[in-house]
Write a protein that binds this DNA or RNA. Structure first.
Lengths: 327, 327
DNA sequence: CTGAAAGCGCTTACAG
DNA sequence: CTGAAAGCGCTTACAG
């Protein structure tokens, strides 16, 4: 049997109330009593039951974190930073991999509510996940706008798309193609694409965009990329909306005997540690993942503390163009 | 205020007991009552408080998962599979990033105990994390042996190291160097190294191993790799104990104008989706990450259910050599 | 400085 | 088929 507070009390010769007070450093307690209680706790290896505490306090110090998939380095890195920062603030993180599927997201939200999380950080591209049932639940959206009631933290996707496209143009590319994820999901990729289109038009170039219908199936991605080369043999620049996609482009280009960057220039997006290590030559737009995590947590904690007043609606953090050998 | 069971009871015109029975599908309940209760729950948007349930049931359906760092694709992928499988089994996952630091690991274990997790899956290379206080806590160790009481799931690191080394030899390498992570941590890398040494000796070659003192500092890793080339200009084969390290080797070799695989052949380890996408040409030993996750969960659930009898002590899953263009 | 009592939201014997 | 009571492990007014 696990030790409980009454066991400690018995051994220390005090009441459970007193033990609780020692535990919580509340009220006056004689030094002697305090020491006795500590000794008793040591003796029977007592650890407070945080479940019971939470029930009383109506505060769990639990945060729900919904991401598409931690195996994607961007989300893996984001999850790492979010959890690390939370841990340092004495918050615990319940991990949820949604695969961007709305049914899973809804189930996760319900699960988080049932578990009385204090708040949720969600990287989700489906609207309406946080509807009726979760009105009073503090939520921060990362990477995409969810609703006017939910603060959003993202990086400057438009600027990133703009910088990427302008770089390709400045390097002399004439036929630039953009490849992005599923548009039906309102991902940040849409803003990157928008920027690409605007820059292209401004430069009197024809925007050509391809859409990957499924973010999680490499073969579909490969097929789409292959189609780009088939349908646009003249392509000399590709802006891919994430680094994994860019890596697939690199592979396909090499397979087709193209010299990078001479025949084809490539820019990715995200600039995670993993992609910068595994494919260090890739030119990419780097997102400030740690800042995103920190900012999201700052805002969420404010919401949790009930500081509705000075919570910013939308925070957009700067990105950084990393020039490698693919441009 | 959040709705509670007594609110539902009042609206449905029954006692809390009855609502609870409907919720848990226990005992006989007239169809009419059941429907009234459901209607009431809908009406006030009631969700059971799992914290309160857990307190009574002494069962949280919570699993603690300790990994070094989800930003490393291997652990990000493992975390993804573990959480996904857990979710399908109605378990929730508390994420812990330990950075392999024993102080953090100990804190996390205490936190998990306080939160009454039903069990822990730990990828940890420091012994003695699960000591006295956690005797009765179900634990599964992944990727490394922790103690004789704790079941271990890993992949066949020795075979992987053997296959990697033999491949390099069979491709004609004469001077093969092995680079691995910190040896003071009893990581699986040690077995890979052991296999390398044995194969080398059997082939009457001199094993040469380098140790990376810090897994999380790319610069230290780069320096060590640089030293390999300085001290062993004759090197024509390198077996790196993970793919990220292998990628750094590739980069350094290219910087030094070496042609891969002509002048230098490289084998990595892990074969994650991310590394296979970002660096698809890398020859590597692929770990069966999803199977590792599944097996660890199977065993943990058995421990949780108290089936001590047929729990295997150690499970070792097969690895797969993936030949790319670096050998 | 310390303790008995009530209650956090739920569930389960027990009784009817 | 349904309800009143007790209890999961804790904390906090309240009283002394």
């Amino acid at each position: 049997m696990k030790a409980k507070i009454s066991d400690v009390a018995k051994i220390a010769g005090v009441s459970p109330t007193t033990v609780s007070r020692v535990l919580n450093n509340r009220g006056y307690i004689s030094k002697e009593t305090r020491e006795n209680v500590y000794k008793a706790m040591k003796e029977i290896n007592y650890f407070p039951n945080d479940i019971a505490r939470s029930l009383f306090n109506k505060r769990t110090n639990l945060i729900g974190m919904i991401v598409p998939q931690t195996s994607n380095p961007f989300f893996g890195e984001l999850a790492f930073h979010i959890e690390s920062i939370c841990a340092s603030l004495n918050y615990k993180v319940l991990l949820c991999n949604s695969l961007n599927r709305i049914d899973k997201e809804k189930k996760y939200v319900e699960m988080l509510i049932r578990n009385q999380v204090d708040g949720v950080i969600a990287v989700t591209y489906n609207r309406g996940i946080f509807d009726s049932e979760s009105q009073s639940l503090p939520v921060v959206a990362v990477d995409h706008y969810l609703s006017k009631d939910i603060p959003t933290v993202s990086s400057d996707n438009y600027s990133g798309g703009k910088q990427a496209t302008e770089l390709l143009i400045s390097k002399g590319c004439k036929h630039i193609v953009h490849i992005n994820g599923p548009l039906k999901l309102e991902t940040p990729a849409n803003l990157r694409r928008k920027a690409y289109e605007n820059v292209m038009k401004k430069d009197r170039k024809q925007p050509i965009t391809y859409e990957i219908s499924n973010t999680f199936d490499r073969n579909i991605q490969r097929e789409t990329i292959s189609k780009v080369f088939e349908e646009h043999p003249e392509v000399d620049g590709i802006f891919a909306s994430d680094d994994l996609l860019a890596a697939l482009v690199v592979a396909e280009a090499q397979k087709r005997g193209k010299n990078i960057p001479r025949d084809l220039k490539i820019v990715g997006y995200d600039g995670t540690e993993a992609s910068q290590t595994l494919l260090p030559g890739l030119t990419t737009v780097q997102q400030p993942i740690e800042s995103i995590a920190q900012t999201a947590i700052d805002i969420l904690l404010k919401e949790i503390e009930g500081e509705f007043s000075n919570i910013p609606r939308e925070i957009c953090l700067p990105v950084k163009l990393l020039e490698g050998q693919t441009t």
